[in-house]
Design a binder for these strands. Structure first.
Length: 222
DNA sequence: GCCCAGGTGGGTA
DNA sequence: TACCCACATGGG
């Protein structure tokens, strides 16, 4: 299993090159993006981030200066804007009251404590928590998303109905626990799925994983 | 017009 | 535990 996981990584890296993730300018921006991208295309998240930045600094203080309706309006392009505005405000409140307004305190080691605290926030589930831990906190934890499950079930390394923890364990039990490696691997999975696996008409001849792919479900967007 | 997108939480059985 | 559903905009 370890060899196959490493081989897939190598083929993806050789095809796509380094991805330089997460696409954000600060750890706090990673957190905001992680909440905004829930069940949402990243392109729409970028519209919301740009509007937030246009209105104020993309910092806890900067967002706190916006009224709730201003926050809702700014993030509207990312969808679920009422729900996500509520979640962002909950995060800001929690940062202020429990972590002295410092994201670095929320993301202080140990990993288990930081993850537990993140999961206690409204709107932060396992994927969002792990994305924040990895890309904002620098912890070696593997992020599992819809792309990860689709890709690795398609190549036959994972059951189609595997849950979050089971999927995460596949990677964390077989791969070296290194932040930069987990960072790059997850980013490459996303790129692979966007470019090949989820296309309505996949260009399988150019796909870097064509040697792993069974071809099943290839035209069903997942 | 229809389907989907880098999930989460609440309700029900 | 295992489903079902709401949440909402924008692009193909």
């Amino acid at each position: 299993m370890k060899e196959r996981l490493l081989k897939i990584y190598t083929q993806l890296f050789e095809h796509f090159g380094p991805q330089d993730w997460w696409p954000a300018n600060s750890p706090f921006e990673v957190v905001v993006g992680a909440i905004l991208t829930q069940n949402t295309r990243w392109e729409n998240v970028e519209l919301a981030i740009a509007e937030l930045r246009r209105r104020n600094d993309l910092t806890p203080k900067g967002l706190e200066a916006l009224s709730h309706s201003q926050l809702e309006e700014a993030i509207r392009p990312a969808g679920f804007f009422r729900q996500k505005a509520r979640r962002l405000h909950g995060l800001l409140d929690s940062l202020e009251t429990r972590y002295g307004g410092e994201l670095t305190q929320l993301l202080a080691p140990p990993l288990s404590r930081a993850r537990q605290d993140l999961l206690a926030l409204e709107g932060v589930g396992p994927e969002t928590a792990d994305a924040i831990l990895l890309y904002a906190g620098g912890f070696p934890t593997f992020v599992v998303d819809a792309y990860t499950r689709r890709l690795f079930s398609r190549v036959g390394l994972l059951d189609a109905d595997a849950g979050y923890d089971e999927t995460q364990a596949l990677f964390m039990q077989h791969l070296p626990s290194e932040t930069t490696f987990f960072n790059e691997y997850h980013a490459l999975i996303v790129e692979q799925c966007k470019r090949y696996c989820l296309k309505r008409k996949p260009q399988c001849a150019e796909c870097p994983l064509v040697n792993f792919c069974s071809g099943e479900d290839v035209n069903q967007g997942g």
